[in-house]
Amino acid sequence: MSEALTQGSGAGVRDETQRSPASVVTERRVVRWLLIAVALTFLALFLVLPLLTVFAQALAKGWGAYLAAFSEPDARAAIRLTLLVAAIAVPFNLVFGVAASWAIAKFEFRGKNLLVTLIDLPFSVSPVVSGLIYVLVFGSRGLFGPFLVEHDIQIIFAVPGIVLATIFVTFPFVARQLIPLMQEQGTAEEEAALTLGASGWHAFWTVTLPNIRWGLLYSVLLCNARAMGEFGAVSVVSGHIRGLTNTLPLHVEILYNEYNFVAAFAVASLLAGLALVTLAVKSVLEWRYADDIAAGARRH
């Protein structure tokens, strides 16, 4: 894992480190090492140690206990549910993100800034509020409650509610990444394709998509990590039915509350592993395709 992270190909995107030792544009050696020490200590205390703790606790009683956590039917149900939710929420937001960034990046219209702000909104809404709003809409006593009860449709405390809450919290991920990217690429290539007689779809598939593919992959990766890991919003709408509406993060909480710490951390380590894979792929993408991922990405 760490090898994959350190060895990535090519030079760093911001490799500004080659300069004469006595350069006037850097700090004294002592200051440099002091700052490096401060930064690394900080990262270790707040980021690395918690991560290591997860794996250390998960393996505290050996591999047998670790693996036993995954043979539980409830754990498997949680894994399946988490995969299912991500399999619906991520493609939904992918299609939405591409459509939204197409409309926003390729056309000029009134109210665009407002639209972008509204798409961004779920980023800054508390996860608990994100769950609460769906309870208010779909709960028995909510906006559509009477209708849903009458037609015997279960939204919250079932898969649809969990999917909706997940879509909400991951709503801006793809759009946010693609809008600046598409804006930077402009419209000249598509116009050329269209002039040459390509259909709109054809132009999208053969011109636009190849241009944004790495940015798209990048955003889907982060979207997926959040979708599988969401806790607060899902916790409010899940109902915590064992084997039925518990996602992996909720299952972690349940195990934790059942004194089953090894199993809790074992399941948590699965999610932490997912996070590590996400980071690794993300870093590789950044090293290789920095310019194709984010426009202006580095914002210029």
Binding site: V135, F138, G139, S140, R141, G142, G145, L148, V149, Q154, I156, F157, G239, H240, I241, R242, G243, L244, T245, I254
Partner: peptide, 20 residues
């Protein structure tokens, strides 16, 4: 028989909000 567990008040709330 499926089971759901949580703080008693929170559990009552889910029933009110429509957990089956």
């Amino acid at each position: 028989v499926r089971a759901a567990h949580g703080g008693s008040g929170a559990q009552a709330r889910t029933v009110i909000d429509g957990i089956p």
